[in-house]
Amino acid sequence: MTAPDPSRLVCARCAVPLSPGKVTVSYMGSSFEVELPRCPRCLRAFVPEDLALGKMAQVEQALEEK
């Protein structure tokens, strides 16, 4: 499967294209602001696969080691 291009994603509920926006991600009591593609109307965010398995997984591991 080829990873979807976030700029080609549409929120199926609101029928609007996703656009980058600041979103809070949290784990084990720590929170960070990151920029993610999200629906400008309902604010649901999309987490791309490479982010989930890359940077996000690294941060999860680091927080778990604390």
Binding site: M1, T24, V25, R44, A45, V47, A52
Partner: peptide, 17 residues
């Protein structure tokens, strides 16, 4: 199903998704 992955972090103020 064409793909699947996971993360442990929560996203968004109310812990979504």
């Amino acid at each position: 199903v064409f793909g699947l992955y996971s993360h442990r972090m929560t996203v968004g103020p109310e812990g979504r998704p």
